[in-house]
Design a protein around this nucleic acid. Sequence first.
DNA 1: GATACTAGTATCGCAAATGATACTGTTGGG
DNA 2: CCCAACAGTATCATTTGCGATACTAGTATC
Lengths: 111, 111
Amino acid sequence: MTPIDLYGICPFVTSQKVLTGKWSMYIMYLLQDGPIRFNALKRKMPEEMTHTTLSRQLKSLEQEGLVVRTAYTQVPPKVEYELSDIGRQFEPVLKALGNWGEAYIEYLKKQ
Amino acid sequence: MTPIDLYGICPFVTSQKVLTGKWSMYIMYLLQDGPIRFNALKRKMPEEMTHTTLSRQLKSLEQEGLVVRTAYTQVPPKVEYELSDIGRQFEPVLKALGNWGEAYIEYLKKQ
DNA sequence: GATACTAGTATCGCAAATGATACTGTTGGG
DNA sequence: CCCAACAGTATCATTTGCGATACTAGTATC
């Protein structure tokens, strides 16, 4: 398929919309380990990220179809997030990006 | 290596900083074909992107070390952009991302 | 009785990214 | 003579993203 297909849709431009957000890649990486609760995920994120931003990011990823949110009717509430089918298909990207990121950090250290 | 290494640097968070910008992935994709002049690259980008933004994006990618800029002292000027070593190492990410993007577009069509 | 945990939303304000427009200066073509 | 092509920069305005804070409400703990 050509980069810009008949519908004027480019896989790279489309993907990039999903990748927006300072933390989306790291969230996707963490979700690879299976379902996780909101606050548990929050604790794994860098401290500079607020729960407000995490909430927004997850809602965005959910609307894009990459993440599935499951709320249990409990008190206190329990909500779990996990990757959807198309979200799990993102794994090769994460793998490639992780490898490149490591190489890039090495490159930066040598500068 | 753990996602967050001894220096507090995470490959995913680091990568994401490089990926900022609405068009960086598509620019990287186009640069894979070899050196290209500024206006030629501009013509290949979606029309909504202005040359101002392309200029800023390229400068950013150059500063991050992914892109090399070569200016020839000519009139009218000739400037070529191409991937650096670490930029070429990004290829697996583009491949994985392109594949996923296509799958994701199919998924969106079915929704 | 006060506080923490659960999972958020609502609102505000700042910072960054982007888009729009105008301008540089030389050369070649009509 | 006028305009296009080349490769940008400078400036302004708008949009978007993000962080900080306050608030919800029911339960369990100290």
